[in-house]
């Protein structure tokens, strides 16, 4: 991160001069106005120059995309990344050959990589992002699977009138199950155990 202080007749001029010196554009920097300056009488007497502090911030989203691109390349997977940003949620969608390798059993490789991306994107910079890593629509398919699993297991719990424990899942997968069964008044759900073994229990 680079940081400089620049001055000008107005705040706008000061910012422009800083951007020129840093050789960058406005969307890549963070601007702090130190002194707004004063026009003074007739622009001559008692005028004060404006001072601004401009610092370049790494584009967290782009940097993380490059990071992901490099890892995928070194895993010898030929793929393209599609990045989607909604407020502070970033989705990287990977499409290409040999994607199964990237997903792994029950998405464990995809989840591990998603966790690493989450760390990298939030390492520097002020903005906090949440990250979803998707590959060939895996998250969507998994969601459908989990929803039907939830309904099936809820039926089982009611039929046997007994608690049913599911296998451990990451938080965002448990959330899918909780929300599916929330509307169902015959069962309640809760999570039990400690990460990474935390799992859902369905109670009639």
């Amino acid at each position: 991160m680079r940081e400089i202080t620049a001055s000008g007749q107005t705040v706008e001029e000061a910012v422009q001069s800083a951007l020129e010196q840093l050789n960058t554009t406005r969307d890549q920097v963070e601007i702090d106005v130190i002194d707004e300056g004063k026009k003074g009488l007739l622009g001559v007497f008692g005028s004060k120059r404006a001072f601004v502090k401009v610092s370049t911030v790494k584009n967290q989203i782009e940097e993380t995309e490059k990071y992901l691109q490099q890892i995928i390349k070194q895993m010898h997977i030929d793929a393209t990344i599609f990045t989607k940003v909604e407020e502070n949620h970033v989705t990287y969608d990977v499409q290409g050959d040999n994607i199964a390798l990237l997903i792994g059993k029950r998405g464990q490789t995809l989840n591990a990589l998603q966790y690493l991306l989450h760390l990298v994107i939030n390492k520097e910079g002020k903005q906090y992002y949440t990250v979803t890593l998707d590959a060939e629509g895996y998250r969507g398919r998994r969601k459908e699977t989990l929803e039907s699993l939830a309904l099936k297991m809820a039926d089982k719990a009611i039929r046997m009138n007994k608690k049913v424990a599911l296998e451990p899942m990451p938080a965002f997968e448990r959330k899918i199950i909780h929300s599916v069964l929330q509307a169902n008044e015959e069962v309640s759900t809760y999570s039990d155990g400690k990460e990474p073994h935390r799992h859902i229990v369905i109670q009639p």
């Binding site: 490789t109 591990a112 990589l113 760390l119 990460e195 990474p196």
Partner: peptide, 17 residues
């Protein structure tokens, strides 16, 4: 924490061919 990052690194590395 609890080796969570180490585990994630290993998972990705072991997945590579």
């Amino acid at each position: 924490k609890n080796g969570r990052i180490a585990k994630a690194i290993r998972t990705v590395v072991y997945a590579a061919k």
